[in-house]
Design a protein around this nucleic acid. Sequence first.
DNA 1: CGGAATCCCATCCGATACTG
DNA 2: CAGTATCGGATGGGATTCCG
Lengths: 126, 126
Amino acid sequence: MSATASQHPDFDASRCPVRDVLDQIGDKWTLLILLTLVATPARFSAIQRAVPDISKRMLSQTLRNLERNGMITRQVFATKPPSVQYAMAPLGEALLEPMSQLVKWAEDHHRHIRAARERFDQADAG
Amino acid sequence: MSATASQHPDFDASRCPVRDVLDQIGDKWTLLILLTLVATPARFSAIQRAVPDISKRMLSQTLRNLERNGMITRQVFATKPPSVQYAMAPLGEALLEPMSQLVKWAEDHHRHIRAARERFDQADAG
DNA sequence: CGGAATCCCATCCGATACTG
DNA sequence: CAGTATCGGATGGGATTCCG
């Protein structure tokens, strides 16, 4: 779409910052990992233990994306065997501020959402 | 929140409210539609014009999910041809409060994210 | 006008096996 | 220990067609 055509006040659909951020934190593991690292820096296997259901494949992939986007840092120690420490970067810590608002909202309103869902599904069935 | 098993302070991986909310607003169209409806209630075709790239299939599907979760309301007028009006429900308006924080954060920090990305990609290439 | 049904492709993600 | 490579099922979402 053209630069001028958007009907959204704060929202230009192309190169949209919010889409960009949402695509990242909206995936299955990103937020879990960030919430793990905000408590304390951790190594690969420690994160995997803290997020039990994640596979090595997804952990590796999600961590790399987080590092690429400047949300976390990655530091390699040439011990034997080598260890790698991940930690929050300033940008990631900054992100968790609005995110924690959303987390709180979700916890506060989850009951309402589930209730609405049941009403809808029952009306649909009846 | 969870009593026993979770390693995450505020995060129980099963039946997680945040996952639930994130799955919904993290999809491709939900936020766009909410931001369209917060300005004014609108009919199906009006929303589709306001979000030009969306297909009828995805618009219909996303609207139904939003209604199911209590975020928007749907009112049918038996005119000829019939018209259907969608509008924000209280729950949806409440959600937009923390969401607008996130939108603002994304806009404020998008430059940093893109810069981090370029650094990472260049280090990778070199 | 406001959908539902179908088809199909792209991406996500888990499981497994292998490597330095 | 900290990954990478490959496969395959599940899901997301676009295009098209049909319906009340």
